[in-house]
Design a protein around this nucleic acid. Structure first.
Length: 505
RNA sequence: GGCGUCUUCGUCUAGCGGCUAGGACACAUGCCUCUCACGCAUGGAACACGGGUUCGAUUCCCGUAGACGCUACCA
């Protein structure tokens, strides 16, 4: 096979919000495309009209915009292989369904859903396949003229794939190696429904991947059982030589308990399972999103990347570009990964610590405004810089730790543990002395204060910091005292000190 | 039920015949220290089970168990 340009795709169904597992699948596809200088396609698989949810497509697009994962072509991105929305490709699919029909690889089936249900009740483990299709109503069992009549009378039908039994079908998976499934356990899958003139996933998927020249199919493990069917379809079309390589990713599992990670788990345990907040148009239900919860997109991607893959070194924090360099699809783990959202918190924290204060400032500024505080962005950034290393996972958690920067203590609580311990008998006198010293400083910078206060404290044998903190903060929290007083400025610092002296004595 | 996949600390994982089984999250302790943090150090914690193969199995093979997935005119 000649070396083709790598092309991969992410092809969600617009049936609701984008699941976080889907985000990881998209991420791996993106990483793979980038590191091979290939292209990343965005396709919409909306062949089930009954499950279509308005707004879902735009939601998915917005999610990737926020995450910073760009597509090269597809819905809303353009490209030479469109249209990229399956509902707009009806005529294409019809042509290929006909090809299969004409070549005897597929057949018409007229069994109604009710008849099939009845059959499934009647026969245990009923499967529509080589062993049973002879007793069903289809173009293989019915006389040709009867089939003609049914068709011309407009009888509803489906087209089924004629699976030849008894063959070991091999799927060469980049992660799992050689997977073998005997064709006898495969059923004659429905490929096309006359009711809505749309194909099912299996047909549309194969036709599109072929026409869009997709070289690698990277998808969730839930597709592994149908991979042999897809192999058979490529062969039936005569496309075996350009069949894409497969990689089936391990699933994301519930943090506790068992089973696939679901929306319910997020609600139950209190973490988002969707990238953005989602308002379900049908139920009106609102689900939280990573963006609205205060996660940095870089943190989300980094966290997700390591759920099912790792670079083989101890490195855990890495940028998207680094991931592109380090990623190796063949080194993905095979077992499902429990979704450890607590570690996701840690990643967010790490990225907050890495980020420039000025970049973080707008998020905190928003919180400040909600609390009625408006200060220049430089002041906001300064506070973020002094406080972000405190025990926080989100910027919004800064507020209760930072309020005193902007709001002077109204009163002083003698019962506060820190106050009681640190505002001792000499505190008032010490603070009066310290206030006098500070008042005499022309330069109120951290360095200047530190030089003056440290030497005074040492000479006088004082430890003024904790009482001073009581005066400026009201309790035992906050940054380094010099940084705090420099931020507040001489006037405010002295005002708070005198108030504390006055109240606490 | 059938078919498939998987199985190392609580969790994410490294390991690709010989290691005191490594790292990270979480947890605990200590150090540092003007509070809280940060940082640093330390600690507890794992090869599902049973057979093989081999001088030697976490690693290879077989079986068992368990978990997960699929089994639609959904993707």
């Amino acid at each position: 096979m000649t070396q083709r340009k790598v092309r991969v795709r992410f092809a969600p169904s617009p049936t609701g919000a984008l699941h976080i597992g889907g985000v990881r699948t998209a991420l791996y596809n993106y990483l793979f495309a980038r590191q091979h200088g290939g292209e990343f396609i965005f396709r919409i698989e909306d062949t089930d009209s009954s499950r279509f949810v308005p707004g879902a497509e735009e939601y998915i697009l917005e999610s990737f915009r926020w995450l910073g994962i760009p597509f090269d072509e597809g819905v809303s991105f353009g490209g030479d292989h469109g249209p990229y929305r399956q509902s707009e490709r009806r005529d294409i699919y019809k042509k290929y369904v006909k090809q299969l029909l004409d070549s005897g690889k597929a057949y018409y089936a007229f069994d109604t859903p009710e008849e099939l249900d009845a059959k499934r009740k009647e026969v245990q483990n009923f499967q529509y396949d080589a062993s049973t299709r002879g007793m069903m109503r289809n173009s293989l069992s019915l006389p040709a003229d009867e089939v003609e009549r049914l068709l011309s009378e407009g009888e509803q039908y489906v087209v089924r794939f004629k699976v030849e039994p008894g063959e070991d079908v091999h799927v060469d998976d980049m992660i799992r190696g050689d997977v073998v499934i005997n064709s006898s356990i495969l059923d004659d899958k429905v490929l096309y429904k006359s009711a809505d003139e749309l194909p099912t996933y299996h047909l549309a998927n194969i036709v599109d991947d072929h026409l869009m020249e997709v070289t690698h199919v990277i998808r969730g493990e839930e597709w592994l059982p149908s991979a042999p069917l897809h192999v058979l379809l490529y062969r039936a079309f005569g496309w075996a030589d350009t069949m894409p390589a497969f990689a089936h990713l391990p699933l994301l599992l519930k943090p506790d308990g068992k089973g696939k990670l679901s929306k319910r788990d997020g609600d139950r345990l209190g973490f988002p399972v969707f990238p953005l907040e989602w308002h379900d148009p049908k139920t009106g239900e609102v689900s939280s999103g990573y963006r609205e919860s205060g996660y940095l997109p870089e943190a989300v991607l980094n966290f997700l990347a390591l759920l099912g893959w790792n670079p083989g070194t101890d490195q855990e924090i890495m940028s998207l570009d680094e991931m592109v360099q380090l990623f190796d699809i063949t080194k993905c783990s095979k077992a499902g990964a429990k979704f450890d959202y607590v570690k996701g918190l840690w990643f967010n924290r790490e990225y907050i610590l890495k980020k420039d204060d000025m970049e973080l400032a707008p998020a905190f500024d928003k919180i400040l405004r909600e609390n009625g505080i408006e200060v220049p962005m430089e002041r906001v950034a300064a506070v973020v810089g002094m406080m972000k290393m405190k025990k926080i996972n989100f910027i919004k958690e800064l507020w209760p730790l930072c309020d005193f920067f902007f709001i002077a203590p109204e009163t002083y609580d003698r019962e506060d543990k820190f106050v009681r311990k640190n505002w001792n008998a000499t505190a008032a006198a010490d603070m009066t002395e310290l206030a006098g010293l500070l008042e005499g400083l022309d330069d109120f910078s951290v360095e200047s204060q530190k030089a003056a206060v440290d030497s005074w404290a040492e000479a006088a044998g004082k430890k003024p910091w904790n009482p001073w903190r009581v005066a400026l903060v009201g309790t035992g929290k906050g940054p380094d005292m010099y940084e705090l007083s420099a931020f507040l400025g001489k006037e405010e610092t002295l005002r708070r000190m005198r108030k504390a002296i006055d109240i606490l004595k």
